[in-house]
Amino acid sequence: MKMKWIALAALLATQAHAQSSVTLYGVMDVGFVSGSGDVANWKGLASGRNMSSRLGFRGAEDLGGGMKASFVLETDIAADTGTGVTTPFAGWSSTDNKSASANGSLQFNRVSTIGLSGHWGSVTAGRNYTPTFLLDFAYDPFGENGAGASLLTMTSAYFNTAGSVNHLRASNLITYTTPAHSSGLSAMVAIAPSETVSTAAKEGGVTSIKLGYAKGPLMADIASAQTKLASSGDIKTTSIGAAYDFGAIKPMFEYSRDELGAAGANAVKKGYLAGAIAPLGSGQARFSYSKVDRTADNATAGQVTQMAVGYVHNLSKRTALYGTYSHVSNTNYRNTPNAGYSVGSAVSSINGKVKAYDLGIRTTF
């Protein structure tokens, strides 16, 4: 009888170690957008103007000894139409990190990872955010969404015809993240192999690293990345950001530089963002000013600036109303051969201006 009780206790201990959980989560966000450009105006509803609308599943299993297995599957949702969103910008959501995909279907192309974690840190494999984008996101008061989204990130979508995967997500990515340390220091390394045959040029491979510090009110990060592109030359990104939380206000700053290295078509895009967030009433006020310059061997230099202000009013822990206003001014800046940087579907000329605002509601679950 004693042996039976021992065996039962061992079985229960094993089951306790193997506890697992799966969580369904998401965001629904719909806003009214109005944009006025010197070429074209646009008004309508759009998804994800404060936070990207999404549906996700995440799970974890306790393997014992401090080790866990985990997975994440997350898909974009166009909440205003109920459809999926495959590619928000050219090249950013491609399966090979170098070509665009079709819009409209429901795919788990936001995040699709599986991994292990323990006292040594964590390792994940699959489609994930790049370390350079995580820096962009951390130092943009508007969280890379809506009319106020950072110029540093959004202009990168048109830096090359394939876009700039350094500034969002990469497929086939293996990511190692160090464990939390009392010193506040952290590191992240991500590598995606070029999945091409040995007789072809290396394409789509990504290497990226981020070093960070976060302790008390101060946080700072530096990151770099490179995406292999044989036809146009590799895209290289270097970014640095810092923020300090004074309580009444949290100012933040980022500087970022993109380089494209094709012979006869070398290009450089560099810029900075200075912004702040501050608690106000039951919500949060946001502000940013950013400027981007671009030079290239085969194009005239250009510049674009953006000023954005906004407010998020919390109705509860999960639901909020929001409003954002943005003003963009182009000085020979070209996102395409004939158009400057624009907000949404409102189009500006290479020397024109575009004004836009968002009014919407967002809830998380």
Rank of each mutant, 00 (worst) to 15 (best):
V292M: 06
T238P: 03
M219V: 10
S329A: 12
S316C: 07
N332R: 15
G216I: 02
K250T: 15
G323S: 10
G310N: 06
I249Q: 03
T295P: 03
G340N: 06
K270L: 05
G323F: 03
Y311C: 00
T336N: 08
P279V: 06
M252Q: 14
S288N: 13
T238G: 00
G247Q: 11
A296G: 15
L229E: 12
H313I: 08
H313Y: 12
V304R: 01
A223N: 02
T305A: 15
Y272I: 06
Y255E: 00
Q226A: 14
H313F: 10
G261A: 12
N338S: 11
A262R: 11
N314D: 12
G340K: 00
G264V: 11
A285F: 07
L273W: 02
V347Q: 05
G283W: 09
R286T: 10
S288V: 04
S329H: 08
L321I: 14
E254G: 06
R318A: 13
N330L: 06
R318W: 04
A301L: 10
A214K: 07
P217G: 01
S345C: 02
K236E: 01
T324I: 12
G310W: 02
Q306T: 04
A230M: 09
Y325E: 08
G340C: 05
S316A: 07
D258N: 09
S256E: 10
D258K: 01
E254S: 14
A265S: 15
G241F: 00
S342P: 04
K270N: 13
F253E: 05
K291M: 14
S239R: 03
I350L: 07
G340Y: 03
S348E: 05
V309A: 07
G241E: 01
D221M: 05
A308S: 14
V312A: 10
G247F: 09
N335S: 15
S231H: 12
A263P: 14
N330G: 09
D297H: 12
L218R: 03
M219R: 00
A278C: 05
Y322T: 05
G323T: 13
L218G: 08
S348P: 00
K317W: 04
Q226F: 06
S288Q: 13
A285H: 04
S232Q: 11
H327D: 15
Y244M: 04
S231I: 07
V343T: 10
